[in-house]
Design a protein around this nucleic acid. Structure first.
Length: 539
RNA sequence: GCCCCUCUAGCUCAAUGGUAGAGCAGCGGACUUUUAAUCCGUUGGUUCAGGGUUCGAGCCCCUGGGGGGGCACCA
């Protein structure tokens, strides 16, 4: 990873958080004049001087009738395309192949009457070979006047240098956008996490790893869409503003609609609306969307994050397990070219081939394995309370047997689940929307996928009996009224939908950010969220 | 909410309680095959903020702020 960084992040970008004087073009001209007046650079330097310098260049360009911010540039090739076409050229080759390319000036090497510059566009790089004899004196001076970070468009021919570096022999160079701020260090990039996350633009300019992580994220989402479209799923969009924040146990963000004068919640899950669509007969639906949970921020949690949920009529949880494996394994192949991943757990790592079958184990069996004691939600709560106490879990008075088993699982077994593991058979008490296990009425046909001791996905055979669903909701509401803020309420409209008939249905939710973390090999969710939630910057 | 760490030039980093430095960037100069170009010269600081201790604080103490990590929380 550090090698990758050394190899790829060697560009200076900028990052300035100080509120340096917002200089206008006119002021820049004044500053430049002042500079001239005082002779040799006695004026203050640093960021303010650098900006004044560059703004003065903009003034000079405009005075000469040039536009430092032209409207468009028509390029003939991207830099990746150039390399594909000409990457095989022998050292010291000149061609008459004409190109027009555009990108940002990342590096410049001035050796007298030649200037070498490194230009980068979205996915590639190329060297610009600028000869004074070719472009003429005035244009050559204009190139020398470019600053690192400027956007340029170039017309020229393809060549390689004596050392074999693929280059565009520049005939004409056009400034496409003048950068007024200097880029961060060309070799070290940005390391300050605060700056990296606040000024993601600067991070993306200089840190190849950051660009790579977001590329992977994109490929994952594209892959999931492809797989689901191929299986006949319809992509839908359901409301973000909810009257009731249901479908999960979490504290919601609260907002207010002025015209309706009503309190609304940002959604904490997609589930209940999507299942209404199955009632409506859509059979296979999915949504990839942002959800919001008003809880802590950590390396694994951001208040807003991205969930993919799908529902499929006539399926049950075993089919959901199969599709979970397929979606994630295919995403790995599409995003990284391999199903091999290194899974980083809290204090260990393991190499895994996602293409191999994933372990499945019931939650109660994992607890038994970890504690040496058989557990089951049918047991009296007192027994389980004692066991919990033995393992450092302090049960709240309102917890039933099922909740205690889940807490025991989290305390004793969860941290060991590095390789992909489907934990199944969650107690009914903690699964108000899941259907009872067909063989054990105390358990549900539910699974959660753990990788690296982190929950990545959750799915079940959906509860479709409206009478039982009402009873489950009422239990939720009772718990909420007893003081558990994260519990749910009775969603009458959802119950009405169930009364119209929800077919047998399997459902699945996948935490996209966590899958992106896994496949990008990063340890913080902030590395896969372009603009993570931060406190506002101080003025 | 609690605990620990951290904040120095535009960026990356130094600096026993004793004159705040370097590399890169910038500025001036040399160079027609460089590639983190090289070479010569050079500008640039409210050391996060505010208090305190001290003859003297970037450094020690207190308060506050940003960020990171951990805990709690997060089905």
């Amino acid at each position: 990873m550090s090698e990758a960084r050394r190899r790829c992040s060697n560009y200076r970008a900028i990052t300035v958080s100080d509120d340096d004087a917002p200089t206008t073009t006119g002021n820049a001209a004044n500053a430049a004049e002042l500079d001239d007046a005082t002779g040799d650079g006695l004026l203050a330097s640093g960021l303010a001087a650098e900006k004044a310098n560059r703004l003065a260049k903009i003034d000079a360009l405009r005075s000469a009738g040039a536009n430092p911010y032209p409207y468009r540039f028509d390029r003939s090739h991207t830099l990746v395309e150039l390399r594909a076409l000409h990457g095989g050229l022998e050292a010291g080759t000149e061609t008459d192949f004409e190109v027009a390319v555009a990108g940002r000036v990342m590096l410049m090497r001035d050796s007298g009457k030649l200037v070498f510059a490194t230009m980068r566009d979205r996915d590639g790089e190329v060297q610009l070979f600028v000869s004074k004899a070719v472009v003429g004196d005035a244009a050559f001076e204009a190139v020398k006047d470019l600053d690192l970070g400027d956007w340029v468009g170039v017309h020229g021919t393809m060549m390689t240098t004596r050392k074999g570096e693929l280059s565009v022999k520049v005939q004409r160079c056009e400034l496409l956008s003048k950068a007024v701020r200097p880029m961060p260090d060309k070799w070290h990039g940005l390391t300050d996490t605060d700056t990296r996350f606040r000024q993601r633009y600067a991070d993306l300019i200089v840190n190849e790893e950051a660009r790579r992580a977001f590329r992977i994220r994109h490929e994952i989402i594209a892959s999931i869409r492809r797989t689901l479209h191929g299986r006949g799923y319809v992509e839908v969009e359901t409301p973000v503003l909810h009257v009731e924040a249901g479908g999960a146990h979490a504290r919601p963000f609260v907002t207010h609609h002025n015209a309706l004068d009503m309190q609304l919640y940002l959604r904490i899950a997609l589930e209940l609306h999507l299942k209404r669509l199955i009632v409506g007969g859509m059979e296979r639906v999915f949504e990839i969307g942002r959800i919001f949970r008003n809880e802590g921020i950590s390396t694994r949690h951001n208040p807003e994050f991205t969930m993919m949920e799908l529902y499929q009529a006539f399926a049950d949880y075993s089919e959901m397990i199969e599709i979970t494996e397929t979606l994630i394994t295919q995403a790995a192949i599409d995003a990284t070219g391999t199903s091999l991943v290194t899974v980083y757990g809290p204090d260990a790592q393991v190499d895994v081939d996602l293409a191999q079958p994933w372990r499945r184990a019931r939650m109660i069996d994992l607890v038994a394995e970890a504690t040496g004691v058989e557990v089951h939600p049918s047991q009296p709560v007192e027994q389980l309370r004692a066991l919990a106490a033995d393992h450092g879990v302090q049960p709240a008075p309102q917890w039933g047997s099922g909740k205690i088993i889940e807490e025991l699982f989290e305390a004793t077994a969860e941290s060991s689940l590095l390789a992909p593991t489907f934990v199944t058979g969650h107690p009914v008490e903690i699964s108000p929307l899941a259907r009872q296990d067909r063989h054990d009425p105390f358990l549900t046909e539910r699974f959660e996928l753990f990788v690296g001791a982190r929950e990545l996905a959750n799915g079940y055979s959906e509860l479709n009996d409206p009478v039982e669903q009402r009873a489950r909701f009422e239990d939720e509401q009772a718990a909420k009224e007893a003081g558990d803020a994260e519990r749910g309420t009775v969603d009458e409209d959802y119950l009405r939908a169930l009364e119209y008939g929800l077919p047998p249905t399997g459902g699945l939710g996948i935490g996209i950010d966590r899958v992106a973390m896994l496949l990008a090999g990063v340890h913080s969710i902030k590395e896969v969220i372009l603009f993570p939630t931060l406190r506002p910057e101080q003025s």
